[in-house]
């Protein structure tokens, strides 16, 4: 029975990296999209207020709404990061179990 801990740890690390590679790369793109959306919305709001298309009261209400929209969008980043951590840990543990099955 041989148990090469260095090989197993390396396999676990590789399994974790492979499992989450694409997901990790998608986060900055999605964050960029969120703030692009926000920029467009705030620009439209500012222009509408300056043109007198909406009142100050409506403007304040819209700013409050935008804050909530941004919060909802950012919450998806939180789900993404949790799902990534979950995938990484489970892939690493599967690599460990697979290696042990071979040993025993």
């Amino acid at each position: 029975m041989s148990f090469d801990i260095n090989t197993i740890i390396n396999n676990m690390k590789n399994a974790a990296v492979d499992a989450i590679k694409d997901d990790v790369e998608s986060i900055p793109d999605y964050l960029k999209q969120i703030f692009e959306n926000e920029k467009e919305a705030l620009k439209a709001l500012a222009e509408a207020r300056l043109a007198g298309e909406i009142s100050d009261k409506e403007f304040q209400n819209e700013i409050k709404r935008e804050k909530e929209v941004l919060e909802a969008e950012i919450l998806t980043i939180s789900i993404m990061t949790k799902a990534i951590a979950q995938k990484a840990i489970n892939a690493a543990m599967k690599a460990l179990v697979d290696a042990i099955k071979i040993v025993i």
Binding site: I79, K82, A83, Q86, M93, I100, K101
Partner: peptide, 13 residues
């Protein structure tokens, strides 16, 4: 191995 076979996986979401 038994823990792994029994589907003992971590769940955050």
């Amino acid at each position: 191995t038994i823990l792994g076979i029994n589907g003992c996986t971590i769940q955050y979401v």
